[in-house]
Design a protein around this nucleic acid. Structure first.
Lengths: 216, 216
DNA sequence: GGGCGAGAAACCTAAGTATGATTCCCCCCT
DNA sequence: AGGGGGGAATCATACTTAGGTTTCTCGCCC
């Protein structure tokens, strides 16, 4: 049997969690069962504050959120998370929502907005989509973060040289621009390549693009 | 007075059109007046088919679409346009919509989904956002298209060399890979630079990224 | 003192630019 | 049919410029 398959026969998405936020325990229980039945891990919260005060595991995940919550509403929570630069995909559900609410949620980047009662399969589809998106976002993020860490080890001069190299200037032009000898530029340049772990100039240019280095 | 300002005192967005699709002429008339009052150009259609059969001007624009239309519905039209790879921003309006409709529209990339009656200012805000987005999309598209045109002028060999150069290989490595002498690679490479209009290797690498050249 | 920036000298490799020549293939004209 | 032109690809030779490394030396500042 495929070791990646859950005991239920569906593939478990290697480390992924669904966070459920709903003040109704019976709803949480039902959703938990649903998600666990397909091999997903689950974590339950009774309010937005509860979720905000807990530290979320660093794995692909998504939020299943009731619009109406005690304290912060679901939409408020979405806004808070966005402001905190936490971009976990959100699936909203509601029994008494309206169109402006759903539009606001979707504009805010929500994956879906389900009206109760919804079909289990619809919820599962949305959760799977959300987790897939989160995994992709995390992978992209991880690459950029790694690059930024390398970038942090550069000295001011080296960053300056990196920017000019990535802009396509020749060593002698860079030297003239920053007022040093060409040989000095070569030395900085070599160190930049080593510190950034670039195996070629093409590599370095792509790295500069990824961490958003603007031409000076 | 600022030559970019319209006679109404609001800045006219240099060449931009709003396409209105609604089967109710009085609605179209009212919207036309609204948009023209802020210096926007307008084009009206009574049905989805009417719009699909007309050739749209090549300027920043957006669609204001009633959900309920004779023939193809607004959502159907959105789907058709997406399938035809036409990504003009869409603003929906409806008097009798529901949440699933709005969610479907937003998932499909709509800018907004307004319920009648809406405030004029809300519609104008959405239209401005939509046109701004379209202008940005067009500019990005134009750059890529220009690059692709240059790419089309390359011979097979030159494209091969371009891909390997962008991947960061040295001339001698490229030569070995494709089974020619290093000098030949240099010649191809020089021609690639000229034909693509790249002023530096960094330039060329970015171009390759933009037109989506995958490392072989 | 150690990290950082700057630089000199020497040396080597990589890249880029002619010039010329050959071959192959395709198309057009006589 | 035959001939010519031209684009494309290939390679050689020769030369110039750019890029990169190593070693060593200063000066500065914390």
């Amino acid at each position: 049997m495929n070791p990646l398959a859950s005991p239920h026969g569906l593939t478990s998405d290697q480390e992924s969690v669904v966070f459920i936020v709903d003040d109704d325990e019976s709803v949480r229980r039902a959703l938990s069962n649903l998600f666990q039945s397909v091999g997903l891990q689950v974590q339950e919260f009774g309010s937005a504050a509860e979720l905000l005060h807990s530290k979320l595991p660093d794995v692909a995940s998504c939020l299943v959120l009731d619009i109406r919550l005690p304290g912060l509403s679901g939409l408020d929570l979405q806004l808070e998370l966005t402001r905190a630069d936490i971009h976990i995909p959100i699936i909203f559900m509601t029994g008494h929502g309206d169109i402006p609410m759903s539009v606001r949620a979707m504009k805010g980047g929500a994956i879906d907005f389900l009206t109760k009662p919804f079909r289990d399969q619809d919820m599962l589809d949305s959760v799977m989509t959300a987790i897939k998106r989160d995994r992709e976002r995390r992978e992209a993020q991880k690459a950029v973060t790694g690059l930024r860490e390398h970038f942090e080890t550069l000295t001011e001069r080296e960053r300056e040289v990196l920017a000019l190299v990535a802009a396509g200037l020749m060593n002698k032009q860079i030297a003239a621009r920053i007022g040093v000898a060409e040989i000095t530029v070569k030395i900085h340049r070599g160190r930049v390549m080593k510190k950034m772990g670039a195996k070629s100039l093409a590599d370095l240019v792509r790295m500069a693009e990824m961490i958003g280095i603007r031409r000076p």
